[in-house]
């Protein structure tokens, strides 16, 4: 019965990676369309300059985040926001984690 319950809720290996999980958690509380920039995402997720871009690219390829690049004056700026698919996928993954706690393994 526990296995059946678990099967109803999907896991998401893309989101479960610890840095990507923190990136999704940082974006999740924001209203739709609101964005965080590179500096803010780095501070919230603990990612380094080197791997932040890579993790964001993975999430973007999965359709979970939208990356926007523009300029503020002459300084380039990169910002990210959750897509609707990303929000749903993150919520599903949280449900998966809570199910594991509730039913054990």
């Amino acid at each position: 019965m526990a296995q059946a319950a678990l099967n109803l809720v999907e896991s998401d290996e893309i989101i479960h990676q610890s840095t990507r999980l923190r990136l999704m958690a940082a974006l999740y509380p924001l209203p739709a369309g609101e964005r965080l920039d590179f500096k803010q995402l780095k501070a919230l997720s603990g990612a380094t300059d080197g791997n932040l871009g890579g993790h964001l690219a993975t999430l973007e390829k999965a359709g979970y985040v939208l990356i926007e690049k523009d300029f503020v004056g002459k300084k380039p700026r990169t910002r990210a926001s959750l897509t609707k698919d990303g929000r749903r996928a993150f919520q599903r993954h949280l449900d998966f984690l809570r199910d594991i706690l509730e039913h054990g393994q």
């Binding site: 479960h16 610890s18 999980l21 923190r22 958690a25 940082a26 974006l27 999740y28 509380p29 924001l30 965080l36 919230l44 997720s45 949280l94 984690l97 809570r98 706690l101």
Partner: peptide
């Protein structure tokens, strides 16, 4: 993982 999510989401 859930504790991580709570902390980061709260800080965000």
């Amino acid at each position: 993982a859930l504790k991580d999510v709570d902390q980061v989401a709260g800080r965000s």
